[in-house]
Structure formats: structure tokens, C-alpha cells
Simulated scan of single mutants.
Amino acid sequence: MIVLSAASGAFGRLVIDQLLARCPADRVVAAVRDPRRAADLTARGVQVRLGDYDDPATLRAAFTGAERLLLISSPELETAHRVGQHKAAVDAARAAGVGSIVYTSFLDADTQPEGVTAAHHATERHLLASGMPHTLLRHPFYSEAFLNPGLRAAVASGELADGTGGRGVNTALRGDLAEAAARVLTEDSLLGRAYDFTGALWTYDQLAHALSRASGRPVVRRDRHDRAPGAQGWLEEQVRSGALERQTDDLPNVLGHPPTTLDQAVTAILTETAPAAPA
């Protein structure tokens, strides 16, 4: 049996899609904070169990019978709270007799104990100390933070604002990372390792060309010198510092094929039907 924690989130649902293409639905269990939000999974034959990161007793019950557990990192942003949730989940998995844990960590969590990787670093150390068999899937930033329907505005205006200083971006799409997780969960030979996942390096100059090719309209990259609002501004600062240029072959090696290309991602975004306006 394969159990997924935090399974009702966007990433968890993508992993379930991949698992259902590889194994019977009755082998898949979705542990969620609110089972009422997962009625669609029940309808697909997936067993849905209550599993709340803030209630360890529910986690022990949710993880019972699991040969493999995909421990999807908590969406909690406060580091101490997140670490506590992850430690409780690992301890619950050990108490429930889970065979092996696959944890969605973050790139460089093994070497950087502070900042965005702090909770992941602490969780990796707790997993090691637990003595449980485990596999680490260190994710990069999601490509969707940069590649999203907002790019349609660049096509409409013919200009792509760029605050990255021309540096490379090594993000990966959720879908590719979800497929990789499903492969690890279902292929014995992939277990017991630490994977440092990155997508193929791309730049905003390449993105502008990809938008032009996909739309049939010229799109020109334009340097933006003011800071983008909110999280986007912080992300662009990371790119400008070179923090998103690390490259490995781990993702294509686990997938068994190249990750989604920039052109494929852009084409999917521009051809996706926009949601209808409310009446």
C-alpha cells in the first residue's frame, strides 16, 4: 500500500494521477486534513483517511499498513511549526510500521540549514536519526512561479518584462516532479537515495523566443529595473544572484525521459482555455 500525506494539494493530486496509471486504486491511500475535500479521490477508488499534520494520532492511523509513504512537505510557512509537523509525521510513520518514507525536500537542503531550506534540512536530519529507510526528493522551485497564464499579457503587449538580469533558471514543472515521485514510489531500484532535481536551464531571453514561436507574434524581452511585487520580486532576486543555476541529471534519469521543455510548457499555457468570466 502507498500512502500520501497532504494528498489533497495540487502536487499530491498530480502524484495520485500518476500512481493510478501504474497501480490499482485500492493500493493508494490519500491522507488529508479534511476528507470532505477529497470526495473526488474516493470516487476514483482511492481510500481517503484523515491525516492532520497537527494531530499525530490521526497520522498514525492514516499511515497504518503503508509499505511506502510519500511525505509531502507541509504548506506551513513558519519554520518551527513546519519542522514540528514533519517530525511528528516521521515519528507517526515509525510507530505505524511504515516500510519506507519518500520525502519531498528542497534543493540544497543537505548543505544549507538556514533560510528557505531550514525546515527541510531539519527534517532530513530527523529522518536520518529515525533509522527508517527513506528517499529524498529535493525539489527546485516550481516552473509555475514563472511560467503561468500571466505570460499571455506578454504576448498581448509584445514585451516580456525581465527582472532576472539574464541569469539562468533551473525550475521544474509540478507534473514532471509528480511523475518522478510516482516512479520512485513504485520502482524498488529507485528507493534509498537522495535526488537533487532540476529542470533544464532556461533564461528569459529564451522564454521570449518561445512565446514568439508558440503565439506566432513577436515578443521582445525587456529589462525591468524596479522590483516586482511580493514573492515574485524575491524569486527574481534569487535568480539574479545565480542561486537557480545548479544543474543535475537526476530528474531525467528518474523519469527515463527529458523533462518538459520550455517550448512545450509555453505552448500548453497559451493553448489552455482561459476560465469563463462570472455571469
Results as ranks from 00 to 15, higher is better:
M1I: 08
A7G: 06
A10R: 13
R13I: 01
L14K: 13
D17N: 11
L19K: 04
R22A: 15
D26H: 14
D26F: 06
V29Y: 01
A31I: 03
R36G: 13
R36D: 15
A38I: 08
D40Y: 05
G45Q: 03
G45E: 01
V46I: 10
R49K: 05
D52W: 07
Y53N: 13
D55V: 15
D55F: 05
P56E: 11
P56K: 05
L59E: 13
A61W: 03
T64K: 07
G65D: 07
A66S: 02
A66L: 10
L69R: 05
L70N: 04
P75K: 00
L77K: 12
L77A: 13
L77E: 14
T79D: 12
V83P: 11
K87H: 14
A89W: 05
V90S: 09
D91S: 15
D91V: 10
A92V: 09
A93M: 04
V102Y: 11
V102D: 05
A109S: 15
E114P: 06
G115I: 14
V116Y: 11
A118I: 09
A119R: 03
H120L: 00
H121W: 11
H121L: 03
T123N: 01
L128K: 13
L128G: 15
A129V: 03
M132V: 12
M132D: 09
L136M: 15
R138S: 11
R138I: 08
S143H: 06
P149S: 04
L160I: 03
G163C: 09
G163K: 08
G165R: 08
G166T: 00
R167K: 13
R167Y: 04
R167W: 11
G168W: 01
G168C: 03
A178G: 04
S189M: 02
L191W: 10
A200T: 14
Y204I: 06
A208G: 13
H209W: 14
A210G: 12
S212M: 03
R213S: 14
A214L: 00
G216M: 12
G216S: 11
R217V: 13
P218D: 12
V219L: 08
V219M: 11
V220H: 14
R221I: 08
R221S: 08
R224K: 04
H225P: 00
R227F: 01
A228D: 05
P229D: 06
P229S: 10
V239D: 05
V239G: 00
A243N: 11
E245A: 15
R246P: 07
T248G: 09
T248M: 09
D250N: 12
P252G: 10
N253A: 15
T261C: 01
T261D: 12
L262Y: 14
Q264A: 15
V266G: 02
A268K: 09
I269E: 01
E272Y: 01
T273C: 00
T273W: 06
A277T: 15
